[in-house]
Amino acid sequence: MPLLKDKDREYLKGEFTRWLTSPVKLLFFTQTLECPTCELARQIYEEVASLSDQISLTKYNFVVDKEQVDEYRADKIPALVVEGARDYGIRFYGLPSGYEFTSLIEDIFDVAAGSTRLAKETKEALARLTKPVHLQVFVTPT
């Protein structure tokens, strides 16, 4: 049974068709015996990827595909990398349910565009960073 409602599916399909003009790669890390949320996450990502030709989904095995696990620094599962023209360092760990699903869809549009709606001042300040900053945003299902 699909996780996305018909209404939402149609809406997203329309938005993707209209606005998603560059490819987006979803890289999903799971394992053979999937954890309960891994299975749900996989279903969500499969459904999202099915809504646009621009979105591709690649599945990796967290245990076996060590090269990709290291390359993308996936340190727990379920993990999702949202990649545009290149890897911008955006990860989703755990189920993107509720408000986080909106964040995922927004991120898909943003990585496709290669830009964000952050303020000019914010972008200028970020450009002056000289050291890496790793952000972890903790959320709960809503």
Partner: peptide, 30 residues
């Protein structure tokens, strides 16, 4: 911000699935 700077990486972490991180970082609210 991760998109705007190559130095920034950003993880969303669903805390109920990784409770040990909630303990580690003292997450009492989201």
């Amino acid at each position: 911000m991760a998109l705007e700077s190559d130095l920034v990486t950003a993880d969303m972490v669903e805390i109920q699935e990784f409770p040990y991180l909630g303990n580690k970082y003292n997450v009492y609210g989201v």
